[in-house]
């Protein structure tokens, strides 16, 4: 079982902090502009700290849970903090494989691999937080395995 690149925690924690900062900003704006008398003065800070802490905990937990494995005939993923999801993607059903790097991912030096199937939830299967070389490797490996196990597709 492989784990994600540890640096993905940085990405997720940063994202959580950013979200918390935006929510805090909204709270600050509400307090300054609308100034409801029942709102205590520390609300923006509270919102920021509360959501930030929650987001960070969830991000770290998500990293702890995330596992993936390239098996003989399928790709296996395990993830989810509240709802634990385990997905099996047989290689025969892989339509195509993408490697994607968003600007933020590029800054951190990570990439994600997305595996598409013809299923109605097809694009759900993506592995975030891989080192770019690993992502390319994984993509190539998945591609080879999918080609090797090529069959008449199911649609």
């Amino acid at each position: 079982m492989n784990r994600l690149h540890p640096r993905v925690r940085l990405l997720w924690v940063a994202r959580a902090v950013l979200t918390a900062a935006i929510l805090g900003g909204v709270a600050l704006a509400v307090q300054r502009i609308l100034a409801p008398p029942w709102l205590p003065g520390w609300t923006p800070i509270g919102v920021f700290v509360g959501f930030g802490a929650l987001g960070v905990v969830v991000a770290l937990a998500r990293y702890r849970v995330w596992r993936y494995e390239v098996r003989e005939d399928s790709l296996y993923l395990e993830r989810g903090v509240l709802t634990r999801v385990r997905t099996v993607v047989p290689f025969v059903r892989v339509q195509h494989v993408d490697t994607a790097r968003s600007p933020i991912e590029r800054v951190v030096g990570l990439a994600s691999t997305v595996v598409y199937t013809a299923g109605s939830r097809g694009a759900d299967v993506s592995i975030p937080g891989l080192a770019p070389d690993d992502a390319d490797d994984l993509r190539e490996r998945l591609k080879r395995l999918a080609i090797r196990s090529e069959g008449e597709d199911a649609v």
Binding site: R84, T87, A154
Partner: peptide, 13 residues
């Protein structure tokens, strides 16, 4: 069985 695309096992809290 032939039509299976993916198998998803999910468990809520």
């Amino acid at each position: 069985y032939y039509r299976i695309q993916t198998v998803i096992d999910s468990r809520t809290v």
